[in-house]
C-alpha cells in the first residue's frame, strides 16, 4: 500500500516525462502522426463519398444500407460519425495498435541508447514479428469494450423503465440516461487500463499474447491506481468534445460542425494514446530495471 502511495506521487512527473520525451524525440512522435494522418484521411474520404467521382461506387452502397436521405446535405453528417466508427474499429485492430507498438519500440531503442535504430523503417521491421500478437491484443481489448457497452445498454434499458419522477430512483435514471456517452468513455478507459501493459510487454519482452496478458495483470495488480490515473487523466481531455457533441453544439446552424468535432476527436485521441503509452512504457521499463 505504501509502495502504491509512493508510486501515485509519480503520476504527474511520469506524464510530464512522457510529454517531454515525445516532444524531444520525433522518432517516437512519427508513428502517432501516421495514425493521425490515416484516420483523418479516412474521415475526409467518408465525408466526400457522396460526391463525384466517388459516388458512382459508394452512393448505391449507402443508399441500400442506410437510405437515400443520407446522400444529401445535411443528413450526410448524421451518418458520418457512425461510418467513421466502423472504419476506426477496423483501423484500430489492424493498423493503429501496430503503429503504437512501433512508437513503443522507439522508446525502448532510445532508453537502450540505440539511436541508430530509430528510423521508421527499421522500427517497423523490428516490430513486425509481433504483428499477430498485437492484432490479437487489439481484438481482446475491443471485445472487452463491446461487452461492457452491451452490459451498460442492459442497465440503460432498465433505467428507461423507471417510472419515478423524483427521489433517488429518478436521480439514478437521470444519471444513467443523460450520462450514457460519459459512461461509454469511462468503460473505454477502464478496458484500456485492464490491458494497459499488454502492448508494451509484447514489444519490450517480445512475449506472445497470453503471456503478455498474464504479465499485464501481474503488473496491473501491483499498481492499479497509478495505471488508472495514467490512463484516466489524459482521457479527461475527451470530455469537452463529448459535451459539445452531446449538446449538438452549433449543429442546427452549421451541420459541418459534426465533421470538425470528429477531426478534433482524432487529434485529441492520438495525443492521448501517445502520452499514455509512452508513460506506461517508461513506467514498465523502470519497473523491469528495478526488478533486475
Amino acid at each position: 500500500m505504501k509502495k502504491e502511495k509512493l508510486v501515485l506521487k509519480k503520476i504527474f512527473p511520469t506524464l510530464a516525462s512522457a510529454i517531454s520525451t515525445l516532444l524531444g524525440n520525433k522518432e517516437i512522435l512519427f508513428p502517432y502522426m501516421v495514425i493521425c494522418f490515416i484516420q483523418l484521411f479516412s474521415l475526409e474520404f467518408l465525408n466526400i463519398v457522396h460526391r463525384a467521382p466517388l459516388n458512382s461506387f459508394f452512393a448505391p452502397v449507402i443508399r441500400k444500407l442506410y437510405g437515400e436521405i443520407y446522400l444529401h446535405y445535411p443528413l450526410n453528417f448524421t451518418l458520418l460519425p457512425q461510418l467513421f466508427q466502423y472504419v476506426q474499429i477496423v483501423f484500430y485492430v489492424l493498423v493503429s495498435t501496430f503503429l503504437v507498438a512501433v512508437a513503443i519500440k522507439a522508446v525502448v531503442e532510445l532508453e537502450s541508447g540505440n539511436e541508430k535504430g530509430l528510423d521508421f523503417g527499421s522500427l517497423v521491421k523490428k516490430t513486425l514479428s509481433s504483428y499477430v500478437s498485437l492484432v490479437l491484443a487489439a481484438l481482446v481489448v475491443l471485445a472487452v469494450i463491446l461487452l461492457s457497452f452491451k452490459l451498460f445498454d442492459k442497465v440503460y434499458a432498465r433505467a428507461v423503465l423507471i417510472s419515478a419522477t423524483g427521489g433517488i430512483k429518478f436521480a439514478i435514471k437521470a444519471v444513467i440516461i443523460y450520462g450514457k456517452p460519459f459512461f461509454y468513455l469511462l468503460l473505454n478507459a477502464i478496458a484500456t487500463v485492464l490491458f494497459a501493459y499488454v502492448v508494451p510487454i509484447i514489444v519490450v519482452d517480445k512475449k506472445k499474447i497470453f503471456a503478455a496478458i498474464w504479465e499485464n495483470f501481474k503488473l496491473l495488480f501491483k499498481s492499479p491506481w497509478f495505471t488508472f490515473c495514467i490512463v484516466a487523466i489524459p482521457y479527461l481531455f475527451l470530455v469537452p468534445g463529448l459535451l459539445l457533441k452531446y449538446i449538438n453544439f452549433l449543429g442546427n446552424d452549421y451541420p459541418e460542425v459534426k465533421f470538425w468535432l470528429l477531426v478534433i476527436d482524432v487529434l485529441v485521441m492520438v495525443a492521448i494514446d501517445a502520452v499514455v503509452y509512452t508513460s506506461l512504457t517508461i513506467f514498465y521499463i523502470m519497473k523491469k530495471g528495478e526488478s533486475k
Partner: peptide, 19 residues
C-alpha cells in the same frame, strides 16, 4: 498535401453539383 488535395480537387470538380 495528401489531406488537402482531394478536398480541393473534389471541391473544384463539384462546385456546382447537387450537393
Amino acid at each position: 498535401v495528401i489531406l488537402l488535395l482531394p478536398v480541393l480537387v473534389i471541391g473544384v470538380i463539384n462546385r456546382n453539383d447537387d450537393y
